[in-house]
Design a protein around this nucleic acid. Structure first.
Lengths: 197, 197
DNA sequence: GTCTATACCTTGATAGAC
DNA sequence: GTCTATCAAGGTATAGAC
């Protein structure tokens, strides 16, 4: 009667997350995972299909988790919401770095990306908040610019590339410039075309 | 008398680049590399130390190559220079994707980052051009914002996360907003403090 | 149906002969 | 300096006990 006694999807995923979050994808092997569960490696294949399938499942869960944290901005005015979303986004990337890059790394070549349900929901949430500020629903251009900056900051910090002196305020500067641009687009679009502000 | 006849650092690195650029780090194994050189795998260890050491060497060379391409903006006025540097940066990331993420991925955990000679030179070049536009030498804040956006766009496109519809102009929007902000900082600083523009 | 036992192949890496 | 031989891990797969 070993500890978890049975292999359930939940138990497997929980153990997989533990290995992944401290040690990265390299530490999430089938053998270490089996050992953590008190089981032989091959037993996992009755539940998991393959290592890649397991990673895809975890990636989908990571997308859901990030989306959940981004809900923190609910009810705020548009600009404050986008600033809050940015903080939540970076907080997620900082506290769960391996979950974050699993989320954005296509596991299989030419695979999902963010074209999974959770990924699309995530993008939809971003689009909606950006649209609230610029006044254009489905404002893909501004949303791409915003997301590009969010990911750039998350990736550089996660890789330790800002150095020990940190981003030196550059993250706030860049985010501020982008939000200002979006806000300006909103003001312009709320007046008759050609009219001065 | 096999083709390259002897194992030299140059021959090894050339073969390693060939494997890396088409196939990524996964394709750069010690066995394939040895086979490409007409040699037994263990022979490589007299010249290379380890696979990680080889990857670090290639990363350093990638940094130098990127820096060389960024010199394309020499002689241009500040704003045009930064726009040109951005295009060159993205061109490098697009045409040599594996070299690009080798460049920015710390090979060993808690390792270099960009704290190598070539990495520092790269950062120095960016800092100088940003300073020319904002009027502040060593304007780390604006340089970080600029680099963050450059990397974000490179990384998202490289990962295929913009989808098949592409960035939808979002890259130009974001870059424009950042350059405008830098230019504004330059105008402000060239006038007496507190004076209106 | 679930797990154990076992085997195959690939990788990075090392020891020691020549 | 290059070779042969070999090791420890890893992912994957199958046969068969219960």
């Amino acid at each position: 009667m070993p500890y978890p006694a049975k292999l359930t999807p939940e138990a497997i995923q929980a153990a997989a997350w533990a290995l992944l979050e401290q040690g990265g994808p390299a530490a999430l092997g089938m053998r270490p995972l089996a050992e953590a569960l008190g089981v032989r490696p091959s037993s996992l294949y009755r539940h998991v299909g393959s290592r890649e399938a397991l990673l895809s499942t975890l990636a989908e869960q990571a997308a859901s988790a990030l989306r959940a944290e981004l809900a923190a901005a609910a009810g705020l005015p548009p600009r404050a919401a986008l600033a809050t979303v940015a903080q939540a986004y970076w907080h997620f990337a900082r506290t769960r770095p391996h979950a974050y890059d699993l989320l954005l790394t296509p596991v299989a070549p030419q695979a999902p990306g963010l074209r999974t349900p959770a990924g699309k929901a995530l993008w939809g949430a971003l689009l909606e908040r950006v649209g609230a500020l610029t006044g254009h629903p489905d404002d893909t251009g501004h949303a791409v610019a915003y997301w590009t900056f969010l990911h750039g900051a998350a990736a550089l910090e996660r890789a330790g590339l800002y150095g020990q002196s940190g981003p030196q305020g550059g993250v706030e500067i860049g985010l501020g410039a982008l939000l200002d641009r979006m806000e300006a687009a909103g003001h312009l679009s709320s007046r008759p075309a050609g009219a001065p502000a």
